[in-house]
Design a binder for these strands. Structure first.
Lengths: 220, 220
DNA sequence: GATGCATGTAAGTAAGTGCTTGCATCTACG
DNA sequence: CGTAGATGCAAGCACTTACTTACATGCATC
């Protein structure tokens, strides 16, 4: 309603499509349905508007809540939940993320602020993985930071590549996450124990794993 | 030497720094040490120059050789080799890759051609993983496409994020790859079997694994 | 020495860009 | 009613950008 809000919203949208250089004041004003002069009256300059839009927008779009519990109970369910939310957030903001990445060389400071969020999420995931292993729900001497990078890496890769190279992601978003989580659980030694797949041998018992609070739904 | 070559080289460099819109003909000509008019005489238009530069440049920079053998022998060594090369290629071209990604919405066709390479590499990796499992060197019912996405995802994530969010990658490039490969081997059921994590005991012999053609260097 | 070819130089054009100015209009509120 | 503040509108300004034109220069080859 308010011209100011409309401008912020339009700025974000035009920026996502055309980047800083392509987001001309004329284009933004038109997208906002507002006179170009009003833009300068409110924000002083194009740079001011973009800064305002980028500092408020993505903060609202994304979220600090990682959906990872303090005390791990059901790693598969919890990681799936995390992946779904994180992937969705990435996919929704993919245009803006790509633009920010592309402008890293020219506007490092803008990109830096945009990077704070993934850094925080990565930290949260790393902490969760450490707790998981501490509680004996995962085994191995893997590096938690690298493991976090691995999971967030696939999600990022999927969210960024799904639209521009669909051949690489023939499965649905939902199935993809299932596959990623299953692989990841194996990687951190928290996967399903007995697995006869191709070469069955002895389904050796796996060490203590606390009883599930709530079971996960899917299991193929 | 040749003005044409200098222009192509300069175009690629300026594009990597400023993107399509920021790569002005003046800037490119100056970077090439050539008169601006010469640019138009050779390539007709800025678009023509950029197209020529982008179609020759990255093809030379990257490589189709994935370093993955037809017959898997030593998965750890082979995947490490693959990761090193792929990561290095990604990291070296990170500026151009970021720019292309950022311009996907505006120039989908350009981005599409840039995407052909990762698609091919992904296919090669998927094939390798299938062969690996077929030969009994990996176990589990994981999805090969998703597994390929997982490994390429971390590499991509690392190569793109290492400079703009170093907090997320506190380890060296080399160590990172070691961690990723170790995690990945576990994920696809090709990791080291016995693993007492924090408390090492007997360096128990590992079960049948075909004799190494060439041994890998490091082993932590 | 003459011809042709690649390049440099100078100038200019039309369009777009960020931003400003001056003035008219509308609306809310005393 | 009157006034103040927010907005629209038209025009313009200084600058950049892609691209063109016209002409001069160097260099190799016949």
């Amino acid at each position: 309603m308010d011209a100011r809000e409309q401008l912020l919203e339009a700025a974000l949208k035009v920026f996502a499509e055309h980047g800083t250089r392509g987001a001309t004041t004329r284009r933004i004003a038109q997208a906002a349905g507002v006179n170009e002069v009003t833009l300068f009256r409110h924000f002083g300059s194009k740079e001011g508007l973009l800064r305002a839009a980028l500092s408020t927008g993505p903060r609202a779009v994304s979220f600090v809540d990682t959906h990872l519990p303090e005390k791990p109970v059901d790693p598969e369910a919890e990681l799936t939940e995390f992946c779904r939310h994180h992937h969705q957030a990435l996919f929704e903001s993919r245009s803006i993320i790509r633009k920010c990445m592309g402008e890293f060389e020219e506007h490092p400071e803008t990109t830096r602020t945009a990077c704070q969020l993934p850094v925080m999420i990565s930290d949260a995931l790393r902490g969760y993985l450490e707790r998981l292993r501490g509680a004996g729900q995962a085994r191995g001497d893997w590096n938690p930071q690298a493991a976090a990078a691995m999971l967030m890496g696939v999600l990022f890769n999927d969210a960024m590549g799904r639209d521009c190279m669909p051949e690489r992601f023939p499965y649905s978003e939902r199935d993809g996450i299932k596959h990623y989580v299953a692989l990841f659980l194996q990687a951190i030694g928290a996967g399903k124990p007995a697995r006869r797949a191709t070469a069955p041998a002895s389904p050796a018992r796996r060490p203590a794993r606390p009883a599930r609070a709530k079971t996960t739904a899917s299991r193929r």
